[in-house]
């Protein structure tokens, strides 16, 4: 009896989490300006993640001239990332970039709509953003720096780490829900 009650309670929690996650993912695409902001943040994040796959190379290239070498550094590292981790690995990075855009737009909306009271919500989302960000881009860093040996022994060459980062971010997004409605106390 109590087992059924526990199962029912869990089903309800999962259903509620799914519903909140859906609302969190939909909000950034619910108006033109939000879509543009989300895509811009996602694009910037993607560029940063790709450039961070070989930080010393990126620093040297950009140090020699941002205008002259930024595009080349990005294109070369994107190509190298694809050649190293394939379509799945690049797709995971794209997914992380888009979710980052979603998370930041939601956080911005929370602050704008509810002010300082929403800081409790921020504390729920931002740790997830940092943790999943490090998990997601960290795999790339390991892969292209001197720790590639460590990456080689990781499941699926770091893709599992990236997927873990994404799941973490989804968890925190689902916890926060729709920025206009969800309140964590």
């Amino acid at each position: 009896m109590s087992g059924q009650t526990t199962a029912t309670r869990w089903r309800g929690r999962i259903r509620q989490f799914g519903s909140q996650l859906g609302r969190a993912l939909v909000y950034p695409f619910s108006s033109g300006p939000r879509i543009v902001t989300t895509l811009v943040v996602a694009a910037v994040t993607f560029v940063l993640l790709i450039l961070s796959t070989f930080p010393t190379y990126t620093m040297q290239m950009l140090g020699a001239g941002v205008q002259r070498y930024l595009v080349q550094a990005f294109v070369d590292l994107l190509y190298t990332t694809y050649r190293s981790v394939g379509v799945v690995g690049v797709s995971l990075i794209v997914a992380y970039a888009v979710l980052t855009g979603v998370a930041l737009v939601n956080v911005a909306a929370q602050v704008r709509l509810t002010g300082v009271a929403s800081l409790s919500d921020l504390s729920g989302v931002l740790p997830g953003l940092f943790a999943s960000g490090c998990a997601s881009c960290g795999a790339g860093v390991l892969g292209f720096l001197g720790f590639t040996g460590a990456l080689a022994v990781m499941p699926f060459h770091g893709d599992l780490l990236r997927a873990g980062g994404l799941l973490l971010l989804l968890f925190f997004l689902g916890r926060a829900g729709d920025p206009r409605r969800c309140r964590l106390t």
Binding site: V44, P55, T56, T100, F130, L145
Partner: peptide, 20 residues
């Protein structure tokens, strides 16, 4: 918040980087 988040993302992976 936005700047901190983006800087954090970049910073978390920039460990050990050096210039030329």
């Amino acid at each position: 918040t936005a700047v901190t988040a983006i800087a954090g993302l970049a910073g978390c992976s920039a460990t050990g980087s050096t210039g030329s």
